[in-house]
Design a protein around this nucleic acid. Structure first.
Lengths: 230, 230
DNA sequence: ACCTGAACACCGTTCAAGT
DNA sequence: ACCTGAACACCGTTCAAGT
């Protein structure tokens, strides 16, 4: 977001790590994961492919940097006022939407639990759980369940989004799955056949949030017994 | 598991889709994801790389087939006797352990929600939720939350396992993260610093199960109100 | 019908050579 | 210190040619 002034900038086009990452994000967003090659990146930056290696260790380093840029941006403005459980939902949605808008993040977000992106999410969730009054012994489990769920589902959704870029394709795709489910062996797949209809018109985002609420309900169970009514 | 008799089999070495998939699994398990190339596979099967394409559409088809083989095997023997919530835990653990033992499954399991592997998991979980007495309106949400959590966490764990193949590396890795967490800015990362100690000696499998229990507790909340005490 | 293996069109990464 | 771009060691996939 913020433009850094570059001391050695010439005509505004010095090759910096920041500019490389930015160009990588643009390629990833507009043309997808496969389009990001060092050759394409070099062409866009009007330089040689080898020059990029002076600022970036390798492709995995490049993807990690691009991921952090997006996630840190998405979590930039947490609302400090809202109620803890609402704040948790807000963080979850921010991550979900960021991955939905930039599906290439998906695979990357797992790589290193110490990268800024993961840390921000962890800290945000953890603080709200404390504010919620979750007792010490249960805190680690509750925190880990929520963070795991948020990252896991968001990444799955990103994988789907990568497969089906357009909304119309998605609708047709879901309808296709629902149809195939309906035709399965009734004895072996009773349940799957039964929920096929729901699949057709469900919304991934709402589904994701319903899961968050379910976990929060479970957390409330773990919290209440140690709380006196006030 | 079951050996199919091949009509045109000569000396037990006819090139079949089943044999190709089996060889692919062996390479993936012993040498990792990057080691599975069509050249390596052809060498192991003592044939040309092009021959494989007669039985398999492309690499993604090959990986999907390998994934299904493992998952279907892992869920082969569900215990019909146990209590529903115990059965759900058993399914979750079976998936977790399968992905833990074959980390390369991770990325693949998302690809197609209509593949046998996903179907088995979905059906298994869904039936137990019905047996648990979850009312119709809540069923879809509960099912989706559980399946999403199971797949999401298992895949994350697989990604970590891929990074750190050996147990000793893992311990050192966790200790390293915990140390880094401890050194973070106390103002910005209060919570993360606080749980760093727990991270050091936590067990991924137990953590995973704790999350399942939390969701089950939430599901019980959604179930109880509509049930009369009996 | 099925197999062979050279050939094609790519990759990420390196590195001598330049400025 | 930083950039260039040819070269290297790979890939997945295709396809004419074989049996």
């Amino acid at each position: 977001m913020a433009r850094r002034t570059q001391r050695s900038e010439r005509r505004g086009h010095a090759l910096t790590r920041a500019r490389i990452v930015q160009a990588a994000v643009e390629i990833l967003d507009s043309d997808g994961e496969d389009a990001l090659t060092f050759r394409a990146l070099a062409a866009r930056l009007a330089t040689g492919s080898g020059a990029i290696y002076w600022h970036v260790a390798d492709k995995s380093d490049l993807l990690a940097a691009a991921t952090n840029e997006i996630i840190v941006g998405a979590l930039a403005e947490p609302d400090h006022r809202s109620e803890p459980s609402q704040a948790i939902r807000a963080i979850a949605i921010a991550v979900f939407d960021a991955i939905d808008a930039h599906p290439w993040i998906g695979a990357q977000l797992f790589r290193d639990p110490a990268q800024p992106a993961s840390l921000r999410i962890s800290e945000g969730i953890g603080r709200r759980l404390q504010a919620l009054g979750v007792p010490e012994p249960a805190l680690f489990d509750c925190w880990s369940a929520l963070v795991n769920y948020i990252l896991g589902v968001a990444v799955q959704n990103a994988a789907n989004a990568r497969l089906l870029p357009r909304e119309t394709e998605r609708t047709a795709f879901l309808a296709g799955i629902a149809d195939r489910w309906t035709q399965l062996d009734p004895a072996k797949y009773t349940f799957v056949r039964q929920v096929a209809g729901r699949l057709r018109d469900h919304d991934d985002r709402e589904q994701f949030l319903a899961g968050i609420d379910l976990i929060l309900a479970g957390i409330a169970t773990a919290t209440r017994p140690s709380e006196a009514p006030h």
